[in-house]
Design a protein around this nucleic acid. Structure first.
Lengths: 160, 160
DNA sequence: TATTGTTATACTCTATAACTATA
DNA sequence: TATAGTTATAGAGTATAACAATA
């Protein structure tokens, strides 16, 4: 029976603390380990377009949105501080990927929108990103992928 | 049919980019989202013991190891730079949780070991940690947890 | 008074590379 | 020469809070 890295850790705990049932680590440890390895490969694609993970998330949020988005919505959705979001948006503005437009109804506020250049870029990046993800999952067949998504979704619906 | 956060994102992509098959996001996005939420709760327990995630990993590595561990082994296992590991070990030494012992065979090297205090602490933390993880998984039954672990393990064996 | 968004500050964490001592 | 580990430096990224403008 083949093993992964988490099996090794579980065996070590079993040897040192046989009184402890570490089986939850077999689930949560693997979620963390998988995420870690997936992140490296996902970020590799973003890096090809000179984007960080968060910059991708901002551009993708703007691309997905059917209505205009404010900085407040962005930092709340992406779980960043308002200050951090200002800094990030600044960087994207400097690169000509997004613009700030004054709000017509609330003069304290603004709307962050993609420039044409930003739209073209995020559309390219998303395509490369999804292709990369599909390739990353090729070690599981369609049924296994669906099962995995369904189990995680069940957990998420109870915990998010 | 109930939905989670990833369903929302998938629906938005479907609306804006109907040409794009984003189904891989349904898997990888959920792994990431689950990891994100799990991390918050896992770190909550570590924080109760005034430990960071990495400090826990160092203490746990030492506790699990059957033989003495060098800083080099630690930073390679935990994927940190040597400098970062030195800083981390320093902090744990200052708190009396680990000690550096000169190696008897290689005088450039040292062995990092748990103090009695460190051993007592990590044993307590691991117990609280596993209890917390078990509670976090209570929305899945034993069979579902096993399935989830098995699917992730299959992916990990092909990708790590 | 409360809220939106920006700016300024300080902090945490890290990688890099220079460095010491030893192999 | 190469390696183990430490130290010093600099950089990235962040939260916090003060701030200005508007609600």
């Amino acid at each position: 029976m083949k093993t992964d890295h988490v099996d090794t850790i579980l065996a070590q705990w079993k040897a040192q603390r046989p009184d402890l049932d570490c089986s939850p680590m077999g689930v949560i440890g693997r979620v963390g380990r998988a995420k870690q390895l997936m992140t490296i490969r996902v970020d590799g694609v973003f890096k090809q377009f000179d984007l960080s993970n968060i910059e991708f998330d901002i551009l993708a949020s703007l691309r997905r949105a059917s209505e205009a988005v404010t900085p407040t919505e962005l930092y709340q959705t992406l779980m960043l501080s308002s200050g951090a979001m200002s800094t990030r948006v600044d960087g994207l503005v400097k690169r000509g990927l997004v613009e700030r437009q004054a709000s017509e109804i609330d003069r304290r506020s603004c709307l962050v929108t993609l420039t044409t250049e930003g739209l073209v870029l995020i559309d390219k990046v998303v395509e490369a990103h999804v292709d990369n993800e599909r390739e990353m999952l090729s070690s599981l067949d369609d049924n296994e992928q669906a099962q995995l998504a369904a189990l995680l979704k069940k957990w998420l619906m109870a915990n998010e």
